[in-house]
């Protein structure tokens, strides 16, 4: 009786059809997994290519020279391969741009999170995000043709190519990274904490600086680290505005070169495959990769520690 009902229907699915369907499902799952693995392959690819060509580089240049020589002149004779001047340039730009982006970005974040009405926030946030969406080559042009001439009117000994203009332009570019990530952290601070402080008669400023910022501190730190790591990896602004003279200096008025700036410089020219100059961009790329990776991992570690703190 029970099966008679089932058999009377015209819509029975044949077992063969079901089997084919199951096979198809398995294949699709495999294909999708493959697409997911592309990201893993990309990481492996990055690490492998950087490593292979860096090893080639170190067969011609000693690691000792790379780490201690205070000159980087792979394109002239005598050739020197000390990465310190490039690290110095990158460091200068990272610190300089942070000096621009941290006050402006944090100020914006505090205003948006503690002072602004919803309407203002809805208008201003996307406008700030535009700063992060403008191509870096545009900032480079702006630094070279607007910021530098403007500064040279007031600073006499500023060179045409200088770290200062690059710092300002990079700093402006990373403002949204600082502001939106720190604002996220501030908005996540529980209302009850704010209300407790207001109930004690605190002003908005006191709530912002004494309650919200400390509570969101690790999120803000992570935002700044991520922003600086973007500054470290930025290429076009420094290539256009900061010059191409790697040197050990902390004077932002001089021409310098960063790690990224060097890679761009070499890539523009006709450097033959297999030469030491060719391998040198991979050695520098490896250094750049390791520095930014360390910063990103550190930022994520800070955030994770913070989240665990909240749960506990």
């Amino acid at each position: 009786m029970a099966n008679a009902v089932a058999e009377g229907r015209d819509l029975r699915v044949s077992p063969r059809w079901r089997d084919a369907q199951k096979r198809r499902e398995r294949w699709i799952a495999r294909l999708l997994l493959l697409a997911g693995l592309v990201s893993v392959l990309t990481t492996v690819g990055i690490v492998l290519t950087l490593t292979v060509d860096t090893v080639q580089f170190f067969q011609q240049v000693s690691l000792w020279e790379f780490l201690t020589d205070d000159k980087w002149t792979p394109l002239f004779t005598p050739k020197h391969f000390g990465i310190l001047p490039l690290l110095n340039g990158t460091f200068l730009v990272a610190v300089g741009s942070a000096l621009v982006a941290v006050p402006l970005g944090l100020g914006s974040a505090i205003y948006l999170s503690e002072y602004a009405s919803d309407r203002v926030r809805r208008v201003v946030k996307p406008l700030l995000e535009i700063l992060a969406g403008i191509p870096t080559v545009v900032y480079g042009y702006f630094a070279l043709t607007y910021i530098t001439p403007l500064l040279r009117r007031y600073i006499e000994n500023l060179e045409v190519f200088n770290a200062l203009s690059a710092c300002i332009a990079v700093g402006v570019m990373i403002i949204p990274t600082v502001s939106s990530l720190s604002e996220d952290a501030m908005v996540a601070v529980p209302r009850s904490l704010r209300e407790a402080a207001y109930a004690l008669g605190a002003t908005r400023l006191e709530v912002a600086l004494k309650v919200v910022v400390p509570a969101a501190f690790s999120g803000i730190v992570a935002a700044i680290i991520l922003a600086v790591s973007r500054a470290v990896g930025e290429s076009m602004i420094v290539a256009l505005a900061a010059g191409s003279t790697p040197k050990l200096t902390l004077n932002p008025l001089e021409s310098i070169q960063t790690m990224t700036g060097f890679i761009v410089q070499v890539s523009q020219g006709d450097v033959g495959y297999g030469t030491v100059e060719y391998y040198s961009i991979y050695a520098v790329g490896m250094a750049l990769f390791l520095v930014t990776l360390a910063m990103n991992l550190f930022a994520r570690w800070v955030v994770r520690r913070y989240q665990e703190g909240v749960r506990a």
């Binding site: 029970a2 099966n3 089932a6 699915v13 079901r18 369907q21 199951k22």
Partner: peptide, 19 residues
């Protein structure tokens, strides 16, 4: 369901939901 345990390992949940 009709005498068969639908939680047996060899039962296809798609088939069950279809019926």
């Amino acid at each position: 369901f009709k005498g068969r345990n639908i939680y047996d390992d060899d039962v296809d949940p798609m088939e069950i939901r279809y019926r």
